[in-house]
Amino acid sequence: MEKDQRSKKKKKLGSYPYTSVIFSITLALFVIGLFGLLLLHTNRLTELIKDNIELQVYLDKDVTDNQRIQIQKTLSSKDYAAEKDDEVQISFVSKEDAAEEFIKETGEDFSSFLGENPLRDAYVLKIASEFQKTEKLDSIKQDIEGVSGVFEVEYEKNMVESINENLATISLLLIGFSLILLIAVVILINNTIKLALFSQRFLIRSMQLVGAKSSFIQKPFLWRATLHGIISGVFASALLYLLINFAYSKINNLQKLYEPDKLLILFLALFILGALIGFMSTYRAIKKYLKMSLDELY
C-alpha cells in the first residue's frame, strides 16, 4: 500500500502533459502527411497522364489506303512519337470502330437518323513526355496538320498543367497550415518544458549542486520528447492510413494511384520528423531554461 502511494507520488513529480503534446505533434504530422500523400498521388497521377497524352489525328474522308499508310509512316518517324519497347505508340481507329464505340458509350445510334457515318478515320499517337508542354503540343499539332491527308489534330489541352497549377495552390495551403501547427508545437513544448523544469526544480537544483552535468539533467527530457515524437508519428500514420483507405473505398479508380512502397517511406519520414520535432524543440527550451537560475522560472 505504502509502496503504491510512493510510486504514484514519483510519477506526479515528473508530471508532464503527455496528451496535449502528443496530440499537437500528431496534428502537425497529420497535416504534413496529408501534404505528402497529396504529392505522392498527384505525382503518380501526372505520371499516368503523361504516359497517356495522345493526339487524335483525324484524316480526310477521301484518303486512300496508300496515303493512310504513308501518313502512319510519317507520324511514326517523328521524334515526338512516344516509343515503348522500341515500338511507336500509334494506333489506327477506323471510323466504323469509332462509331461503334460512340454508340456503345452513348446508346444512341446516329446512323439511323443521319444515314451515314459522320466520323473520320483517325490515328491515335502518344507523345513522348519531353514534348508535352502546351507550346510544343501546339507546334506538333501544326506540324501534323501540314501533312497531306490529315484533316485535323486534337488533344486534351492543359490537363497536366492544370493539375500542376492546382497542386501548387493546395501545397501552399497545406504547407502554410503545417507551419502554423509546427509553431504551435514549438510553443507548446516550450511551455511544457518550462512547467516540467519548474515542477522538478528541487530535483534539478539538487542535481546541479552535486555536480550533475547538464547533459545528465537533459537526457530524460530529450528522450521522452523524442519518444513522444515517434508515438505521434505512429498516430499520424495510422490516421492517414485510415483516411486513405476510406478515400479508396469512396472514390473510384483512386486505388490505381496506390504505391505501398512510397507510402511506407512517407510514414517512416513522419516517425523521424516527429522525433526530430520533439527533440529539437525540447532541446531549445531546456537550454533556455537551464541557463536561467531555477528561481527565475516563477
Binding site: R6, K10, S206, V210, G211
Partner: peptide
Amino acid sequence: RRKLGIIFQDFQLFPDRTVAENLTFVMKAT
C-alpha cells in the same frame, strides 16, 4: 562540485524516496 561536499539548508533529502535511493540518485547524477 564533485570535488566539494555541499551541505546546505536548501538541499534536503528527497522525501519521496528511501535513503538508498537518495544516495543512488546523487551517484547516478555524478
